[in-house]
Amino acid sequence: MSDAIIQMNHVDKHYGALHVLKDINLEVARGEVVVLIGPSGSGKSTLCRTINRLETIDAGEILFEGTPLPQEGKDLAAVRAEIGMVFQSFNLFAHKTILDNVTMGPIEVLGTPKAKAREEAMELLRRVGVDSQAEKVPAQLSGGQQQRVAIARSLAMNPKVMLFDEPTSALDPEMINEVLDVMVELAQQGMTMVVVTHEMNFARRVANRVVFMADGAIVEEAAPDEFFDHPKSDRARDFLNSIMGH
């Protein structure tokens, strides 16, 4: 598995007395799409956030391209710049226009000249279908549009991996697909993705591997068809039954 871009070895994390990540071992290969699912509170979001160290860990190690994640400073920032992240609540910079949101990273972090950054940003916004909104501020856009801008903002950094932390959970139902469509396209283009989601159809269609978590531990890992059709553990069966009930 020399092709692993992310490796997590025996990762543990506690919030006080709460053991939120229990001996996590996970590898993500270049070009792979890994979907994390599980009941709320199972630690899947926390796991996702440890990969770019928005959450610290208590024990174990996380390697990015074979090197342990730096703990702080410029080295950590440099790694973060290579890992895109899309949040549940979009987190677009509220005081900046859509275009400025997308050019912020390239200009401030990569030192891209402004004109070039704007040009590339407009191209990305066209790709996610919100280029007509470039001069508006985030509050003027719908949730689905904002999330697509957030994806464009991450892509502007040319990341090697994209982390999606429940990207559609805060969206109105009619806007979920427009965001998923963008994500499907990204996956088809070979982007390495770690996706925390409750969208089972998306997982089945796009994932190379489904990782099922419960109570802070990885309970089961399998190809999507295998996992959804023949879950091995009781926890996974219960979970799938509870969400597929209708």
Partner: peptide
């Protein structure tokens, strides 16, 4: 200022001082 604002900036690889002066303080 919501924590998500600085988290988004962190995830882009911005430095602490840039996050303060370009993202958090203006808001």
């Amino acid at each position: 200022v919501p924590k998500g604002q600085s988290e988004a900036a962190l995830s882009l690889g911005m430095s602490d001082s840039k996050i303060m002066f370009k993202i958090v303080f203006p808001q």
